[in-house]
Design a protein around this nucleic acid. Structure first.
Lengths: 121, 121
DNA sequence: CAGGATCCACATGGATACTG
DNA sequence: CAGTATCCATGTGGATCCTG
């Protein structure tokens, strides 16, 4: 049993923070879900599917996920250039958890949005 | 079967975005995990456990979670004032998913941090 | 096509002082 | 104790232009 002071507490070695903070950005979760569903997807296709992500942010998101070993990048030396992304094995182990969270969100969103409107500060 | 354009796509009714974006902030996940573990916890105790969250941000986080019906607020008219927070039923249904994600993070953090360091842009 | 480089707007979040 | 209010620093992310 760990001490509580380690489980939460000042950021340093807290795994929830160091790892999950990354997933808290605007696009990572979407990308992981998309790759989990589509398999190997090229840059432009990801961008079209998501619809409103800028090139810059998609690039950053993919690089960060790649740095964390969650997605892998595959370059095809064609003309025009083609680059595809897919989940790594580590990414595949993360996927079901993201999917469950997504499913929960889908099931509860209507009630939550309703509560959110009725809530008075 | 839904169209893909609805599952991801421009934010409007995407449940992942509207609901999970909130959990993507800096403190919500920590608070949910803490309440899930401790049950009913008072404001100052949450702040001490987390360690480096400001009053302002903890207040905002708790209010947002309350507005979404994930935590409930209970005031005890004592002197000095005591306010306790706990997960609602909805919050309890969310908890296991967060815990699994947290467990995944804990299991993988070492390798991820290692990869992160070795990654060259 | 995939992305690098800038510049810039805004939202998030911290520090501090004050209140019921 | 549990907030509220304000000011301010920074990070995140968008728009635009340019390159291999």
């Amino acid at each position: 049993m760990k001490k509580n002071s380690e489980k939460f507490g000042p950021s340093d070695k807290c795994p929830v923070r160091t790892v999950l903070d990354r997933l808290g950005d605007k696009w990572s979760v979407l990308v992981i879900l998309l790759l989990g569903e589509k398999g190997s997807v090229r840059f432009s296709h990801i961008q079209k599917e998501i619809g409103d992500v800028s090139q810059k942010m998609l690039t950053i998101t993919l690089k960060t996920l790649e740095a964390d070993g969650i997605v892998s990048r595959h370059v095809f030396a064609e003309v025009p250039l083609r680059v595809e992304y897919r989940l790594t094995e580590r990414g595949e182990t993360l996927l079901p958890h993201i999917q469950q969270l997504s499913a929960w969100a889908e099931q509860n969103m209507r009630h939550i949005l309703k509560d959110r409107k009725q809530y008075v500060a």
